[in-house]
Nucleic acid binder design. Structure first.
Lengths: 142, 142
DNA sequence: GTCGAAACATAGCCTTGGCTATGTGATATA
DNA sequence: TATATCACATAGCCAAGGCTATGTTTCGAC
């Protein structure tokens, strides 16, 4: 059996979904990071965001511009970046999902550091139903 | 506890890894698909590749050009696309990993159709060690 | 208050991965 | 064999996400 011989349309749809997930992944990461920075340091400055994301400062500035367009953050120059209600909600969801994915990976035997690494990419493609399965597994195995 | 308070550098490194994984994800998908098409239909034509990927034909052509630059495929116009040895090896790895991820997700309670969906995005971020953990789990639970 | 350094913005460039529109080569069939 | 059709290539556009180089602001130290 060469996997499920799904139709071209179905196959294409899966790829489309993965592409869509990818396009919001960056927004999710920035939102979560901005929330973390506020929790840890009381503010989220562009320079810190860039450093944590591992990108140059103008790259972070550009990403923040996109977050603003999407209504996820506001910012005042030289005053930091602030999550909107929608942004904060997104950050919370992402943070919970991230923790669940890491905990789940560790629970099935992935070393903690590897779990953190892989989760960073995996989490954006974990649907609600899959997340539920992970949570169910953690309850059962906990 | 706000997860592990990892250093900015470590945090940045994880994102860099996720970005790198993303940059090869498309190559992996195309390689696997071209292998599948050869297995199923004896050849891989640009039009079929585009249809299965869910993109317009010029988009597929452009991607194939990149695959050629990377030494993964060769192609003769109007004669189809062919995997090189490196491309075939990649396709095999990707296909095995894909199957393992899907089987693993199903094993932990994810519905099959959802597993197929999510695996399409997840698989590209599953490291060798995590894949080993998945295989180990499948053996134990099988 | 001035001034230098740090923080941020802006401009301009690159690659990737989408798209549409349109040109061209191959093939089959009438 | 001529031509219509299909398959593919090419051109040109766009947004996203990187980068470097170079203005501006802000702010703290003096």
């Amino acid at each position: 059996m060469s996997t499920t011989p799904s139709s071209p349309a179905t196959h294409a749809h899966r790829f489309a979904r993965a592409r869509a997930a990818q396009s919001v992944a960056l927004l999710e990461d920035y939102a979560e990071l901005i929330g973390d920075l506020h929790a840890e340091m009381g503010e989220a400055r562009v320079a810190d965001i860039a450093a944590r994301m591992g990108v140059a400062q103008p790259t972070a500035t550009k990403a923040i511009a996109r977050l603003k367009r999407e209504g996820l953050v506001t910012s005042r120059p030289y005053r930091g970046v602030f999550l909107t209600d929608a942004g904060a909600a997104l950050a919370d969801r992402v943070r919970r999902r991230h923790r669940t994915v890491v905990a789940f990976l560790v629970a099935v035997g992935v070393p903690a550091d590897v779990a953190e690494m892989d989760a960073e990419g995996i989490e954006h493609h974990v649907s609600d139903r899959t997340l539920s399965a992970f949570e169910g597994f953690l309850l059962g195995a906990g």
